[in-house]
Design a protein around this nucleic acid. Structure first.
Lengths: 254, 254
DNA sequence: CAAAATCTTGCAACATCTTCCAAAATCTTC
DNA sequence: GAAGATTTTGGAAGATGTTGCAAGATTTTG
């Protein structure tokens, strides 16, 4: 059998089974475990499959939930690290605005113990805290933007117009030296309102966001107080950003 | 079995059970308690599970399962029936206000196909629709009332003050001939605002609510257009309510 | 406060992974 | 088609990761 055919069959099998051991796969495609291992390496490179100890699992099974939920292991390690580092910046009993990005969601997960006051327009974040008594969570109104579970529209903007917070933890589609941008036009108005409502602005941006401008311009660099990113962020841009008096925290880089 | 698969199965089991002892889990995934302990450590790091003495509990239960749906399994059949019957009253493309009660949640589950416009202050209901494109869902703002996932406070009341709807589907703590009452004082203001905003008022009340007045009076019988209940509702009260020109629908007693 | 249960830590046995090598298959070139 | 180069394959040795157990520390219970 040809390598490609074998790999496709492995993929298909995993699609049905979700998990499979090496032996199982080796049996399935009638090749040695060594070959399967190699094939899995290729598929992992391709991004469809994730190798595990003793086998493999399919990477993106129908995740009908919010596009990120907890399944997306894509850059899970980095996002976890960013989340932890960013949560460390929040003092106890502060009022925090949480934006509706995937990275910010991980910040929220590490905030539980600080019993802060939280304001958010993200349903996933709201759900995270709905069972917990410690934190007071204000949800802005708005219309649900289907895929992401974000509340958008005038109700949301209005809500941010009425409040003041100590910190806003934001995310974005991309950052360059011209400023921060985002792809969802609907979110821009809301994010501007967030920035206006908070005294300190923290952006959580994983390394893939650097130097990648997105459709709509959100704000210039001058409004940013702190950026939290991961170790793979390009060093020259970090240096440049620090020249702009932005505190850049690289998570996981000790 | 591979670690990841085992961990996923632990997660899934916890999702159903909410709590589980180490032995239970060890049995479930066919591994030693030591291994389960280690797995739980990983899952806790990941943030989906919290370890406890002697076992573990799920951290943020799946979005469609707030405290009520897991707990109240005993009247599930009745609530399903009420939900179905009430959903049948809603026409296509109507604007519907959905209250935040356990019974109303079941109505929401049957509304999906009607592509209505929905306004709600219930997070479980919001989650229900967040993945679906068909319906437009407006979430009122507010502070999360922890256990129920309801949004309360002035933001919520305000939101209902600004809108108008065709129907309001409500729930309550009890109904008697003096009127409808509810136990959560915080909800009263919001429910009054809902009633004010809708042209037609439907109450979904399972049979246990009848003749059982609750702490705070919500409204008199005169504002009610329709009541949906189950077959166990006391016949004399149903008769009495019909005398008040209220349409009483007994679900499952076709 | 003591008994019982549970947790942590260290360890040895085991399974799996990586890296390398030789054989087989495939592709080039003539 | 044949000889040689290249790729692919299957396997073996050592490195690494995982598992289950047991002893001591810690927490819970009565």
């Amino acid at each position: 059998m040809q390598p490609e055919e074998r790999q496709k069959r492995i993929e298909e099998y995993l699609l049905k089974a979700e998990f499979a051991s090496l032996e199982e796969l080796s049996d399935q495609v009638d090749a040695s475990v060594s070959t399967v291992r190699r094939d899995l390496g290729v598929l992992e490179e391709k991004g469809t499959v994730r190798r595990t100890h003793g086998g493999a699992r399919i990477l993106n099974p129908k995740s009908d939930e919010f596009t990120f939920s907890a399944r997306e292991t894509h850059q899970l390690g980095e996002k976890e690290a960013i989340g932890k580092a960013c949560a460390a910046l929040i003092g106890p009993n502060q009022t925090v605005i949480l934006d509706a990005g995937t990275t910010v969601y991980y910040v929220a997960r590490h905030l539980e113990l600080k019993s802060p006051q939280i304001i958010t327009n993200s349903l996933p974040v709201a759900n995270l805290f709905s069972g917990v008594n410690k934190a007071e969570v204000v949800v802005t109104g708005g219309v649900i933007y289907p895929r992401l579970g974000v509340l958008v529209g005038p109700l949301a903007v209005e809500a941010f117009g009425k409040i003041r917070a100590d910190v806003a933890v934001m995310s974005a589609g991309g950052i360059s030296l011209e400023g921060v941008s985002n792809s969802h036009g609907l979110l821009i108005d809301i994010q501007r309102a967030m920035i206006h409502a908070a005294r300190k602005i923290i952006f959580c941006l994983d390394s893939t966001k650097f130097g990648r401008p997105s459709i709509s311009q959100l704000c210039g660099l001058e409004v940013i107080d702190t950026i939290v990113t991961d170790a793979a962020a390009p060093a020259d841009m970090v240096k440049e950003l620090r020249k702009h008096k932005i505190e850049v925290i690289v998570a996981g880089a000790a």
